[in-house]
């Protein structure tokens, strides 16, 4: 039986949820390399296939990570406009990134293991 016309595509809904789920990890992984400002992060994430992150999504996420103590910020004056805000990982953020990585790997492994015959 076909889904109703107004119901969202189940696959699209799933991919949105997955993207949102791993977006935190993507940001933390990006920052684990070094300090970045918000727009930089957007550009980097936008280049990732299947993500399509906008700044409207990214800034609330960065703010939440800062409130959670996983990232910290500093402002730097810019000659071409308002001051830029730079983000770096905190030790807690580094630890959280490692835990998330491990957890995600375990999830994927468990998920794929289900496909293998016993």
């Amino acid at each position: 039986m076909a889904p109703p016309a107004d119901s969202p595509d189940p696959l699209e809904n799933w991919t949105v949820q997955v993207r949102k789920g791993v977006l935190d990890l993507c940001v933390l992984n990006l920052l684990s390399v070094g300090e970045r400002h918000g727009y930089d992060l957007v550009k980097q994430l936008a280049d990732l296939p299947g993500f399509g992150v906008t700044e409207g999504t990214l800034y609330p996420l960065l703010s939440r990570l800062r409130v959670q103590g996983l990232v910290k910020t500093r402002l730097e004056e810019s000659p071409a406009g308002p001051a830029r805000k730079y983000y770096t990982l905190t030790p807690a953020g580094r630890k959280a990134a490692a835990l998330m990585d491990t957890h995600l790997a375990e999830l994927l492994a468990a998920c794929r293991a289900l496909r293998r015959p016993d």
Partner: peptide, 17 residues
């Protein structure tokens, strides 16, 4: 759970930029 003021300020800065 994000800081609304902070997010608003960041977005305003990006728009102005």
């Amino acid at each position: 759970g994000a800081d609304a003021d902070e997010v608003a300020a960041d977005l305003r800065a990006r728009v102005e930029e």
